[in-house]
Amino acid sequence: MGYIALRPSPAPKKPNPIHYKITALGDSLTEGVGDLENQGYVGAAAELLKKEKNVKSVSVSDLGHRGDTSADLLKKIKQPNYSKAIKASNTIFLTIGGNDIVRVFRQNFLDLHAGDFKKEQTSFSIKLKQVLKEIRQLNPDASVYYFGLYNPFEDYLGEANEDFVPILDKWNANSKQISENYQPISFIPTSDLFRNKTKQLLSKDHFHPNREGYNKMAKRLIEEIVKKQSNK
């Protein structure tokens, strides 16, 4: 009776080391206002990424700027330092839209109507498409993580908050729908993180997240990044 030669099982392949080259774009949330010492969600996310298995390096170019609207970001993306950073990255973080909504409050504070937000949302949608198109032209392959908006006004609006929440939800749903045309991209919701918790999660200015608020944003972001990585 002959013997059957058994081939040794091949050694399991080692997963490729991951090097994250991150460009963070957008407004004061990306800049980290409210927790500048720790660079907000960007700094928190970078630290969490470094602890992930197989991650060998994490580099960050944070180009967030306080007060920027979608129109401001659209102009800046075309500047050499922005375009160079976007081209060099494999991962992009994005927050934009909060200041577009704030402008509606400021311009119509004494006579605020739902139609005012609808008009601004239409304008924002056009610019968001342009921003994402510019990013994709500069870098077709980078994974984009785009944060939705939360409601920092719930303690100020009183009964009017019930009218504003559906407006914000519609704004976020529309932004998510637009973003899906610019894959690979993930929409990161935040409204549920802050709902009924703004006293605990916002900084002293009652608008920007505090360290705990940013940490919650970063944790959700990392969960999405890890999920996306595991599906590759």
Rank of each mutant, 00 (worst) to 15 (best):
G43S: 07
K76R: 15
K76D: 13
K204V: 15
N38S: 13
G26L: 09
N151Q: 12
I77E: 09
Y41G: 01
G148L: 05
D205Y: 13
T190P: 02
S28Y: 02
D100G: 07
L149T: 12
L48E: 06
T30M: 01
L74K: 11
D192T: 02
K204G: 15
A45W: 11
N108D: 10
L49P: 01
K216R: 14
I92T: 12
L202G: 11
G32I: 05
V58L: 09
S186T: 13
G158Y: 00
Y3V: 06
A24D: 02
V226Y: 03
G158V: 00
L201R: 08
D35N: 14
S191N: 15
L112I: 08
N210V: 05
S83H: 06
A114C: 04
N139Q: 08
P15V: 09
P166C: 15
I22G: 02
G67M: 07
F187E: 04
E134S: 13
N16L: 13
G148K: 07
D163C: 06
L25Q: 07
K133F: 09
A160H: 02
T122V: 02
Q229D: 15
D72L: 08
L168M: 13
Q130Y: 02
S191C: 06
H208W: 04
N172I: 00
W171N: 14
F207A: 14
P166W: 15
F117S: 05
T30L: 02
F124D: 05
Y82Q: 06
G115W: 03
T30A: 01
R136L: 06
L168W: 12
K118W: 03
G64F: 00
E212C: 00
A88F: 05
Y150C: 10
E120N: 11
A24F: 00
Q229T: 14
H208L: 09
A5C: 10
S61F: 01
D68Y: 15
Y82N: 03
K76Y: 13
Q121G: 02
E154T: 07
S123T: 13
F194Y: 08
L94F: 08
R195E: 14
N196G: 03
L221Y: 03
R66N: 15
D116F: 08
D72G: 05
V102N: 15
V42S: 01
Q79M: 14
P189F: 02
H65M: 09
K127R: 14
I167Y: 11
V144C: 12
R136W: 06
L29V: 04
S143F: 09
L132A: 10
K13N: 12
E47S: 13
H206S: 15
Q107T: 13
R106T: 14
N38I: 03
F93R: 00
E31S: 08
S57I: 01
K176Y: 08
L128C: 08
E224Q: 10
L168P: 08
E37F: 04
I185C: 11
L94N: 05
A85D: 06
P12T: 06
G43W: 09
H206P: 10
D27L: 07
K50C: 10
T69I: 10
E120F: 04
V131L: 11
I135P: 09
